[in-house]
Amino acid sequence: MAVHGPAHDGPLTDKLTNHHQQSTRGEPRVALVTCTELSDLDPDDRLVLAPLAARGIAAEAVVWDDRAVDWSAYDLVVLRSPWDYALRRDEFVAWAQTVPALANPADVVRWNTDKRYLGELAAAGVPTVPTSWVAPGETWTLPADRAEYVIKPAVSAGSQDTGRYDLADPEHRKLAVAHVRRLSDAGRLTMLQPYLTAVDTVGETALLFLAGPDGLAFSHAIRKGPMLTGPDLGVEGLYKPEEITARTATPEQLAVAEKTLAVVPGGPDRLLYARVDLIPGPDGSPVLVELELTEPSLFIGYADGAPDRLAEAIATHLHPSA
Rank of each mutant, 00 (worst) to 15 (best):
L196A: 12
A257K: 07
L318G: 15
T316A: 06
D166P: 05
D65N: 03
A206H: 08
W111L: 03
T34D: 03
I57N: 04
Y302N: 14
Y165N: 04
K259Y: 09
A255E: 15
A147R: 11
P282L: 11
W95A: 10
I279C: 12
V235W: 11
H319Q: 06
L87I: 09
A157L: 12
V202L: 11
S184W: 01
G284Q: 08
H179E: 06
P82K: 07
P320I: 10
L318T: 14
W83E: 06
V155Y: 00
L38P: 05
V33C: 02
A106R: 06
S81I: 08
S297I: 00
A311W: 08
P6M: 10
L183A: 04
D44F: 09
K240P: 07
D269R: 11
F218I: 13
P280V: 06
Y195W: 09
D169H: 06
P280H: 01
R89A: 05
M227L: 10
P170M: 07
E204Y: 13
V78S: 05
L76E: 13
T260N: 04
G230M: 12
L293N: 02
V199A: 10
L278P: 13
A122W: 02
D169S: 09
D107M: 00
L87T: 10
P130N: 02
E27K: 14
L210Q: 03
D114K: 08
K115I: 14
W133K: 14
E312K: 11
T250C: 14
A86D: 12
G26Q: 00
V126L: 00
L102T: 00
R29P: 03
V199N: 01
P130F: 06
D185F: 14
P280T: 01
V30D: 05
G215F: 00
L261H: 14
F92T: 15
Y273R: 09
T34S: 02
A311I: 10
V99M: 00
V256D: 03
P130S: 11
H20M: 13
M1L: 11
W140M: 15
S132Q: 09
V62W: 12
P43L: 02
G281F: 01
V62M: 09
A59V: 13
D304V: 12
A7V: 13
R181Y: 12
T113V: 02
V99E: 02
I151N: 03
D65K: 00
V180H: 10
